[in-house]
Design a binder for these strands. Structure first.
Lengths: 191, 191
DNA sequence: GTCTATATTCGGATAGAC
DNA sequence: GTCTATCCGAATATAGAC
């Protein structure tokens, strides 16, 4: 089993990601994916149950990717400051390297087409960010306050910058903005 | 002209807002609106050219509303600090009072169904927020840095709190969170 | 101005050959 | 496993009576 070429499956997913992130899920038909990926309808329905399944596979893959990256960050750093900074730096770099992936995973309204998925804010990667903040607060690295609020104000700015960058509003690359943006973000929660 | 009852038009818009903000634009059919508003298809197409026109009217109305509220804030306060604080307080209060309106205007991906509309970040209300920040920076109330970045970090946290509140993640009402959230946000840009 | 009935288009999904 | 041709339901929009 699974000796079959995974190449076509990947091509379908890659094309779907491109179309979903540029036009949106609902403005993309299976036939659009078919044409752009230069495969047949039959092939698509051989590898996936349907359009929703494609989006679901994509979303899971990308969340897993995000989670893996953050896990690496946790492994390499141990203070809340260093971890959160590294996480933001990583997210910024990922936005430059894989804008379509970041646009789909952070920007799309998944609940509208994947009703069984939990909201993005309770996905593993976001839970991990909140955990960094909570632990830092216990150790006195962050001012004491509601943890959800602290996480929102710390990451809210950087996340907004990512959104603006993906929308083409920000000219310079995000890593270049890091050294001005991060001190602001951190100051908002430091004791 | 315009002697005709505007009541039906309002009912259609109100119902559309409810459905768009809960299920999403693409998951809402004109027949759904028809049923929920308890009007006929004919009535809907008498007042609007089609589904997209309904969304467009709604979006313009709500942006105008938002703009008016912020204009009031500008009139009543004169320092950047007081203006931005009042704007955030206002946005928080509006979120509690009109969650569906705020969800639709801030959360929806308008470009996907209103291709002629400019992106929300370059709409008047958001331009006005950026203007508050720019002016404050000229007067030395805020630290000097890229204005887009400053606006993003100052309002990014509060906007994220609004999103989390609309998603049901935050239990307490936003105005209650203001006194913890605002000092954080302001500190991130104050000199 | 408001209604019902209907036309038309489109897109997701399937059937069945190779 | 991959292909083409086709089906079927849904949703937007229109026609035309009252």
């Amino acid at each position: 089993m699974r000796t079959e070429s995974t190449e076509m499956r990947d091509r379908i997913l890659k094309t779907a990601l491109h179309l979903f992130s540029t036009r949106g899920y609902f403005n993309t038909s299976v036939h659009d994916i078919r044409r752009e990926a230069d495969v047949s309808i039959g092939a698509i329905y051989h590898y996936f149950k349907g359009k929703e399944t494609i989006a679901d596979a994509l979303y899971r893959d990308l969340l897993g990717w995000l989670e893996g990256e953050i896990r690496e960050v946790l492994k390499r750093h141990d203070t809340a400051h260093d971890r959160c900074l590294a996480a933001v730096a990583h997210l910024f770099a990922m936005t430059e390297a894989q804008p379509e992936a970041m646009s789909f995973v952070l920007g799309a309204r998944h609940r509208e087409f994947l009703p069984d998925q939990p909201p993005i804010c309770s996905s593993r990667p976001f839970e991990m960010m909140k955990e960094m903040v909570s632990e830092g607060m216990r150790k006195g690295e962050l001012r004491t306050m509601d943890e959800t609020v602290a996480t929102a104000v710390l990451f809210g700015g950087p996340l907004r910058l990512i959104q603006l960058r993906l929308d083409g509003v920000i000219e310079r690359s995000l890593p270049e903005e890091l050294e001005t943006a991060w001190p602001c973000a951190w100051r908002s929660v430091s004791p």
